[in-house]
């Protein structure tokens, strides 16, 4: 569904990602792992169309989308819940969802909103509350919900569990499992390696902008060197 071919990307003169290639099959959950500053968010934002490619190409459904503006990519079926959530803080929950569904006909807004509410019932309790006043967990739910309003076939979520209480992490991962069962293809960026490996099919580990390991999540769990060197877990906790 999505192919990155030898991409270099970054900001201004700073290159964040070097010669990265991977592909994601339809229906998979793909996890991008690695330490802070490894280039994970830059990769996601280059797929969304916000970080410039210096070289390489991005194909979606076989079509080269490398030079497509961000607003066209969402129409193709790519939506993002970005790093730091980046909700519209002055807008209410309801209004954030409206903006999320702007690429779809107005008539589909109500149906999609109900879908988001069944995914995160908690959001229905405070429809008129400004997003900036929500808790971290609620903000993450809204960020994922806002992206789902665009009916994406590829949903990208950056730092799913960062700064969340364990209970909220559970809520978000339950939603990810549910979306996966519905056939949504998901690209995750995560620091919490264990959670990511539990849901992911494929894994790519980045370090300083380079891919240092790629393979299935099952293999990643079995590779002791990888786990100790890059993912900062002991073998026991990964098992």
């Amino acid at each position: 569904m999505l192919q990155l071919k030898n991409i270099d990307c970054g900001y201004g003169v700073f290159q964040a990602v070097h010669d990265l290639s991977f592909s994601i099959e339809t229906g998979q959950v793909f996890a991008l792992l690695g330490p802070n500053g490894a280039g994970k968010s830059s990769t996601i934002m280059s797929i969304a169309g916000h970080v410039k490619l210096f070289a390489g190409s991005i194909h979606f459904d076989g079509e080269d989308i490398s030079s497509l503006p961000a607003r066209e990519r969402v129409k193709k079926g790519i939506a993002v819940a970005p790093e730091g959530r980046r909700l519209f803080p002055d807008l209410t929950i309801e209004e954030n969802l409206t903006v999320g569904g702007y690429s779809k006909p107005k008539g589909k807004e109500a149906v999609n909103r109900d879908m988001v509410f069944s995914l995160f019932p908690r959001l229905t309790e405070r429809l008129k509350q400004p997003a900036g006043t929500l808790s971290g967990g609620e903000q993450q739910m809204l960020a994922i919900g806002r992206a789902m309003m665009a009916e994406p076939r590829l949903l990208m979520i950056d730092e799913v569990s960062l700064g969340l209480m364990p209970k909220m992490v559970d809520v978000c991962y339950n939603a990810i499992h549910h979306l996966k069962s519905q056939g949504v293809t998901i690209l995750l960026v995560e620091q919490n390696t264990k959670r990511a490996l539990d849901v992911a099919d494929q894994v790519c580990v980045l370090e300083s902008g380079n891919a240092v390991w790629q393979g299935s999540a099952a293999d990643a769990k079995k590779d002791p060197d990888l786990i100790e060197a890059f993912l900062g877990m002991t073998k026991e906790s990964a098992a």
Binding site: A48, G49, H50, P69, A70, R71, V74, K75, A79, V80, P82, R86, F88, P89, D90, L91, E95, N96, T98, V99, G100, G101, Y102, S103, R146, M149, A150
Partner: peptide, 19 residues
């Protein structure tokens, strides 16, 4: 609504299809 969203974060608004 989209206008107010764009004023606070143009890049995110564009991510959801706003011209």
């Amino acid at each position: 609504t989209v206008w107010r969203a764009t004023v606070t974060d143009p890049e995110m608004a564009e991510s959801f299809g706003v011209d």
